[in-house]
């Protein structure tokens, strides 16, 4: 084909924020994957004699207050963070998108009203407070953290899906599908969903980064992953009392969080540009 290359792949390759974000995100995802098979040290084995070491060839990022290797801790912590955020986004998409599509298909009905007002209700609560409440009732743990974070993703995706779907419902091709006798569910999945996927992917990356932050916050408060499972948030909490003589204990997980979240946000930003055909055309 002649003319400027307007393919998605070309746009992705030439988008600075996407390449940078995807590299950062990919790096931490790879770290989490590798930790499933191999870590330099076992994070469940303590070495009290070798605690609070600085950077050294044996422990490139030092050791913590129980003598565990920081590299291994960050690697396994990545697992927790990514797993929690991923499942939480999955809950948000899995429940929120169908609800939003249904609300849009039955717009201005009682059903729409109930779904959207229920969303408003969830939005009206401070997210962290509810998460604390849930963990207070059901006990702390990674699973309850996932549920708590996931619930707050539902209205985000429900609103997004409904908003995107509403404008599509007025388009002529949807009218043509209705003339072809297709019911609302079929139209929603055949015509509406494929046309809002872009929106959902972009929002997904952003919610993913928020999920990592939320997990870190819950773990920091002791409400997320429980020992011995390492998590970036709990590593920060552990480092708090030793910040004056072992700053690396806070620095390492802190930077891991910063770079993962930065990577995801950059990627989301890049994806938004890539998926917007108007921006794509102007970048010939």
């Amino acid at each position: 084909m002649s003319g400027p290359d307007t393919s998605l792949w070309f746009a992705a390759r030439t988008s600075r924020s996407f390449v940078l974000g995807a590299t950062l995100t990919g790096f931490f995802a790879a770290v989490a994957l590798v930790s499933l098979f191999w870590t330099p040290y076992d994070v469940t084995v303590l070495d009290i004699a070798g605690k609070l070491q600085g950077f050294s060839p044996a422990h490139p990022l030092g050791t913590d207050h129980l003598g565990r290797d920081m590299v291994a801790m960050v690697m396994v912590g990545a697992q927790t963070s990514i797993a929690v955020a991923f499942v939480a986004v999955g809950i948000g998409v899995g429940f929120g998108v169908p609800l939003g599509l249904m609300a849009a298909a039955n717009r201005r009905t009682l059903f729409d009203e109930i779904i959207m007002r229920a969303n408003d209700l969830i939005f009206a609560f401070p997210a962290l407070l509810i998460a604390i409440m849930i963990t207070a009732i059901f006990g702390p743990g990674a699973i309850n953290a996932i549920i708590a974070i996931g619930i707050f993703n539902i209205p985000v995706f429900a609103r997004l899906a409904r908003g995107g779907a509403l404008s599509l419902w007025t388009r002529d091709f949807v009218m043509a599908a209705r003339v072809a006798g297709k019911n609302k569910a079929k139209i929603s999945f055949e015509h509406i969903l494929p046309n809002i996927t872009n929106l959902l992917i972009v929002q997904g990356t952003i919610q993913f980064s928020l999920g990592i932050l939320a997990e870190a916050a819950l773990s920091y408060l002791g409400l997320g992953a429980q020992p011995p499972l390492p998590s970036w948030g709990r590593m920060l909490a552990d480092a708090q009392t030793m910040i004056s003589f072992a700053p690396h204990m806070a620095l390492v997980p802190g930077l891991a969080i910063v770079f993962t979240v930065l990577g995801l946000n950059l990627m989301g930003d890049g994806l938004r540009d890539i998926f917007d055909p108007r921006l794509r055309r102007s970048r010939q």
Partner: peptide, 28 residues
């Protein structure tokens, strides 16, 4: 009965092939 709309740009799902769009009324 079938219908043809005014806007030749908005009448088709941009993500479907022409064959798929044209065959849509078979659903009836």
């Amino acid at each position: 009965m079938q219908v043809v709309f005014q806007d030749p740009y908005g009448s088709f799902n941009p993500r479907h092939t022409i064959a798929r769009s044209v065959a849509e009324p078979f659903h009836l």
